[in-house]
Design a protein around this nucleic acid. Sequence first.
DNA 1: CTGAAAGCGCTTACAG
DNA 2: CTGAAAGCGCTTACAG
Lengths: 344, 344
Amino acid sequence: MARRRPTSHDVAKLAGVSRTTVSLVLNDVPGVNISPETRQRVLEAARQLNYYPNAAARRLVSGQTHTIALVWHRGPDRTYRDAFLPGLLQGITRAARHYGYHVLFRPIDPDESDDCYVELARGRHTDGLILSGPRSDDTHLLDLHRDGFPLVLHGQLPGTDIPSVDIDNVRGAALAVEHLLKLGHRRIGMITNAPLIYTASRQRLEGYRQALTQAGIPYDEALVRYGNFDEESGQQAIEALLALDPPPTAVFVASDMVAMGAMRTLRDRGLRVPDDIAIVGFDDITAARFIVPALTTVRVPTFGLGWTAAERLIRLIHRDTLQETHVLLETELVVRESCGAAVP
Amino acid sequence: MARRRPTSHDVAKLAGVSRTTVSLVLNDVPGVNISPETRQRVLEAARQLNYYPNAAARRLVSGQTHTIALVWHRGPDRTYRDAFLPGLLQGITRAARHYGYHVLFRPIDPDESDDCYVELARGRHTDGLILSGPRSDDTHLLDLHRDGFPLVLHGQLPGTDIPSVDIDNVRGAALAVEHLLKLGHRRIGMITNAPLIYTASRQRLEGYRQALTQAGIPYDEALVRYGNFDEESGQQAIEALLALDPPPTAVFVASDMVAMGAMRTLRDRGLRVPDDIAIVGFDDITAARFIVPALTTVRVPTFGLGWTAAERLIRLIHRDTLQETHVLLETELVVRESCGAAVP
DNA sequence: CTGAAAGCGCTTACAG
DNA sequence: CTGAAAGCGCTTACAG
């Protein structure tokens, strides 16, 4: 800026009052009696000078930044996770705005050390942290938590009491499989979204098992193959499933991206979906609507995940107590064409 | 935190030096001679106390926040724009990290007033602003610019000297149409991405015209229809084009999302792409790869857009001069199946 | 009802 | 080579 920014001093001078009064008026401090005329004079002076209080000074004196940060791990599941970013961020920023907070976005690339977000917290750039895709070997995280720094995980870290928000993967997967069972399928294969080191993968597999058990169908390991976030893994997995004798009549693919690969292979092989084989995905990425046949899938409430995480984090910052430490959000089955259910 | 955070005072005491020395050592201030032993003692004390300088205090004294903000307009083109967010943010945060800056994310919903980002700038929460989707009626923007506040636009605002970064829409559209011409098409229709009030729409239409002119084909208004960001608008537009006598043999759809609608209608009508009618899109959204036939389209360099915007903004913050005020990034034609070119 | 003063936690001339 | 002091721009007890 060319000229010096106005300070509360300038406003005080122009209004003919002290800086104390300026602060009191501008912050609308309750329980203080200031004459309406004085109040008006201060407001007018501030407007005239186009005065905005310096955030740094405020932060210093209040000890609060009114900022929360989203730390976004970008691992091998990058493309997969990117699909959720807009919704999640939208949920976080909406909640933040509602409570008067700003949002800092901090992606962590695979080549970065895990602790690069620690400075954000310890250096008080932010009042709290949402960590998306937490690592179980992240000791800095536990240190921060131990020191009472407000933290919410997006995703799960088994065996910790750090508050977390996630979707109910088990239930979501069961939803998908139950739907296939209802359509009459008995021999249902599964392709996981990722290797089983990922919590979500294990949980979605668990949901598949539960739904089968519930229906009195024995779990058959041969019907399960492992995806790895991308199309190609879906192609390989479906090949293996097709090689079975007999092959499954339906497959639950626990990731839309992986399902895209599976469907490509089926098409290349001249197999029709859902007539020859039914498919249900998971995630509801944008492409699920557009592919032919349109993919029946399990929708992830990205906005709700973001809103809930931010809302709980701000609670923590305010030293409110959380009712429950871990929150699981419900998913929703979106029935389209690939499952073979009649679409109205 | 349970116990009081350590301050530079604590570090000084533990190391047996003054706070000045602590600051000098920790900031590695050049041109100061401090004995290696003292330096070591300070570093050790800081580590032992797990000391991180308070950001608010630093910001106050330096007058810099080392933060840039992305202001993200969420208008009627919401879904459309969301497709670009992850790439753009990734580019911005990478550049920011490279220069030691943090990134604040601030979406603006349609129900919010346009000036809600002003406080961010005037209150010095950030050293500069990237505005994505600027409005020509935004007077606050011009005020900030006049006052010398560092600003970079993502998108264009005709008739302003505010630095901007965008893609070369004209060239990108021409690329698409030239490709269709090369494949032998002479009667090429166009569906715009949005109404012509949007700069990008006008420019893509201009690229279409230029390519035709270049090939000696007269511009025929009847061959142009207007999309509106979504599938449905694509369906209506393609219907109108098909009703022509004769209909075009190829259509350039200046938005993948709109193209999805057009392709759905073509499929429903039993028309084959590209055999009966060739299609080229614009944007390269994720779904473009997965739809059948895979969509030939013009790729938008989202990462480059973000990186360039952030890099230029930081230049501005450093009071460097920019070589050129407006930067246009090149797009790239991604040839897939919908255009009818032989794919190797 | 309003003002003078202290203090938040740093950095940076300025002495010694 | 190192330290005492001022100051960044606010807010908040504390006097009057």
